[in-house]
């Protein structure tokens, strides 16, 4: 479980996020949604310590991350898997080496075991027979999927995914959503998914946080989301005609 208390981060004069409180339970898919530039990625990076927030705390199982010493932080981080918005695969390593990287660094496994583990992860994201390719030789969506495989290689307790479906076709998108949900339930992972994709929200969102202008604007389940009367949330969620259709069929109103 991760608890965020009064989290705030500014860059120069710009207060990017401000006073965000949230509880991310384990074993369920927590989603952060919001307009582009609303501060979602910054929030995730503050939570994992890539940005130092100037306000607030992030508690991992009750222990404040930013108050830990370097050794403890490293311990927590080894239990975090993160998919970056831009995949962040290592250019100089092949697909299989990318996925094996955390295992080689920390795992105490034999080489063949590491390869097996990497193959299992790659298979789960439907990347097959691409072991020896370099990231630059993959499509954007494939890079995303390899990024997910790398993030889950160490069986993380905390899984952060920054826009796992952007750049994926609807079918693969669903495969990835299901995979994230599966892993979360199977291993009791504390999962945080940042997304724009209303499909994923409807598919897997169990706890949804809507960030607007750097603040937590709304929070709830997807059922509540469809019936909410929060203006900005509705503008965001029902921007597309498909979602408006969903709402109409659900509530019988416009």
């Amino acid at each position: 479980m991760i608890v965020v208390e009064g989290l705030g981060k500014r860059f120069g004069d710009v207060q990017v996020i401000d006073g965000i409180d949230a509880v991310f339970q384990k074993g369920r898919v927590n989603q952060i949604i919001g307009r582009s530039g609303s501060g979602k990625s910054v929030m995730a990076k503050c939570m994992v310590g890539l940005h130092r927030p100037e306000k607030g705390r992030v508690l991992y199982e009750g222990r404040s991350f930013h108050d830990m010493d370097a050794e403890e932080k490293r311990g927590i981080r080894q239990r975090i898997g993160m998919l970056f918005q831009g995949s962040a695969l290592f250019d100089s390593l092949t697909v299989i080496e990318n996925v094996m990287f955390p295992l080689r660094m920390f795992g105490l496994m034999a080489k063949s075991e590491m390869e097996d583990r990497a193959h299992t992860c790659l298979k789960r994201v439907s990347i097959i027979d691409k072991d020896q390719l370099f990231p630059a030789e993959l499509s954007g969506g494939m890079q995303k999927r390899v990024g997910i495989a790398r993030a889950i290689a160490m069986n993380p307790e905390y899984l952060f995914c920054d826009e796992p479906n952007s750049g994926l076709d609807p079918q693969t998108s669903i495969v990835i959503d299901d995979l994230i949900k599966e892993i979360t339930e199977e291993f009791g992972t504390t999962t945080i998914v940042i997304t724009h994709d209303m499909n994923s929200v409807m598919e897997t969102g169990e706890h949804i946080l809507f960030i607007h202008k750097g603040r937590k604007w709304w929070e709830g389940t997807r059922e509540q989301l469809l019936r909410s009367d929060n203006k900005e949330l509705n503008e965001f969620v029902f921007a597309g005609s498909l979602m408006r259709e969903v709402k109409r069929s659900l509530t019988g109103e416009e």
Partner: peptide, 12 residues
Amino acid sequence: KEQIDALDIMGV
């Protein structure tokens, strides 16, 4: 390209 962030996140 956030690859250094990725290393940091792994605890490397």
